[in-house]
């Protein structure tokens, strides 16, 4: 879905409710935009482009301001994600343990490139730059759970129980 198309798509009622709830939690605090975006992503899995006008209006910011912040930070996603988010560290310590090879394996195994979501909506694969597990490289995070010294075999075992 292109960003242009998404912007024209109205926010469905359920999403609107979630965005409004996020705004209600943080509105009034100093400089709340990042917190609101985190809360929206926590509730919806991503920040729908169609939510931007609503967020802008309530926080008294321009749409450009909000769009600028959403797109500045790697963490904020603008498209729906798969049921499971898999992050493979690409930073130096993991490179010293050849995370490129692990990444190739993961891409092959899941059938999706970095930054992509599988066609069946099961997995979203993301690169990440340091999970702070650098003495046990390579590191992978699956649905917020951290794993160390990951090998192709142990990766396969980790995702086997996921549906």
């Amino acid at each position: 879905m292109s960003a242009d198309r998404a912007l024209r798509d109205p926010l469905d009622d359920l999403s609107r409710e979630q965005v409004e709830a996020a705004l209600a939690t943080y509105q009034g605090r100093p400089g709340p935009l990042l917190q609101v975006l985190h809360e929206v992503q926590h509730r919806l899995g991503y920040v729908p482009p169609a939510a931007i006008p609503l967020i802008a209006e309530v926080l008294n910011l321009s749409r450009a301001d909000v769009h600028g912040v959403v797109t500045f930070y790697h963490h904020f996603r603008q498209a729906p994600i798969g049921r499971h988010v898999i992050q493979v560290c690409q930073a130096e310590a993991c490179r010293s343990m050849h995370c490129e090879k692990l990444t190739e394996h993961v891409q092959r195994k899941l059938g999706v490139e970095l930054h992509g979501t599988t066609a069946d909506g099961r997995y979203t694969l993301e690169p990440v730059y340091c999970l702070g597990n650098c003495a046990c490289s390579p590191a992978v995070m699956i649905d917020g759970e951290l794993h160390g010294r990951v090998t192709p075999d142990s990766f396969d075992a980790l995702i086997a129980p996921l549906s």
Binding site: L34, Q35, L37, Y73, H75, V128
Partner: peptide
């Protein structure tokens, strides 16, 4: 505590 968002 305020969270960053993946920007080095």
């Amino acid at each position: 505590v305020r969270l960053g968002a993946g920007a080095y």
